[in-house]
């Protein structure tokens, strides 16, 4: 009897392993494999211009922390994020709150704000370049018509990160807004009714007593994904500034690209990628911990 049951259990276990095998193999191949390969490459002096490679231990990492270009890229990324993150979060939240209660135009406005998300950023970057042109750009024409000095948005080291942040904002706000709208829609209506009965009918009270706390899981998600997006800035830099002027827009991912595909230092680029991976992992961890805490509380 028990032997038969044992073999049944074994057969079930085998079937279970057989069923998860295809997915497991794909996950290993597509996600885990490349990560291991990059970590492996970061411990070598592999370049694209020479056959063969040798292990160099942690040399790439020590070089990285001594590298002025790395510090510069990190600083540029943080400055860019400081422009980008608050806007990407609060402008989206504000738009979502403003649109949410509209009955007639909500869907129209949703589509309008979401349109940039659907466009190809590399192509739209060229449009922005034309708009921001220091001489014939529409923005500068507008500025000078008000008697202001023209600004070389993409050519001035003091402005370029802010200008890139503005373009990124334009492209992400619609997406974050839709996330916030989904979060707002999920708040039960009757909580606002209860709040009105309890005397919280002032918009400020409604926001801080109901909307903001109920929106917390969405906010954490938006904050974390937007932070990751900030560190992934690449295409507008590649298309518009190539890291210039004077490396003032050379952000982290662009530096990695330069090291790997322009200077062919694949080992070093791999080390940069691993650092980037660690950074993203920290953000993902924060989000997981925060959302777990919400569920448990």
């Amino acid at each position: 009897m028990s032997a038969a049951r044992g073999s049944l259990a074994r057969r079930r276990a085998l079937l279970a392993y057989a069923l998860v095998a295809p997915a497991s193999v794909l996950i290993l191949l597509i996600y885990i494999g490349p990560i291991i390969a990059v970590i492996f490459a970061s411990l070598t002096d592999y370049t694209l211009v020479r056959d063969g490679f040798s292990f160099v231990g942690l040399e790439n990492y020590t070089a990285m922390f001594a590298d002025e270009a790395f510090a510069n890229a990190l600083r540029n990324t943080v400055i860019y994020a400081a422009f980008f993150l608050p806007g990407a979060f609060f402008i989206s939240l504000f738009l979502a709150l403003a649109i949410q209660s509209r009955k007639k135009f909500r869907s129209v406005l949703e589509v309008l704000f979401f349109l940039p998300v659907t466009s190809t950023l590399a192509a739209m970057a060229l449009v922005w370049a034309a708009l921001m042109d220091s001489r014939q750009g529409v923005i500068n024409n507008t500025l000078t018509s008000f008697g202001l000095e023209p600004v070389n948005f993409l050519g001035d080291p003091g402005f370029v990160l802010a200008a890139l942040a503005a373009i990124s904002l334009w492209s992400i706000i619609g997406f974050n807004m839709v996330l916030f709208l989904a979060g707002l829609t999920a708040i039960p209506r009757n909580l606002y009714d209860a709040a009105a009965i309890d005397g919280a009918d002032h918009p400020v009270d409604r926001f801080f007593r109901v909307t903001w706390p109920m929106l917390a899981p969405t906010s954490v998600f938006v904050a974390v994904t937007t932070s990751i997006t900030a560190f992934k800035l690449f295409d507008t830099v590649a298309v518009l500034t190539k890291g210039g002027p004077a490396r003032s827009s050379e952000v982290f991912l662009y530096l990695t690209f330069l090291e790997g595909f322009e200077y062919f230092n694949m080992g070093y680029a791999a080390a940069l990628s691993v650092f980037f991976l660690g950074l993203i992992f920290v953000f993902a961890l924060i989000q997981t911990l925060l959302s777990d805490r919400r569920i448990n509380s």
Binding site: P188, N190, L191, D193, A194, A196, I197, G199, D201, R209, V210, P213, M214, A216
Partner: peptide, 21 residues
């Protein structure tokens, strides 16, 4: 008058308690 000004108390069908409080 707002519900606040009417000074009414109300118990809702699904209670409408604030889940975060």
């Amino acid at each position: 008058a707002s519900p606040k000004a009417r000074n009414v108390a109300m118990v809702f069908q699904d209670y409408a308690l604030y889940p975060h409080m």
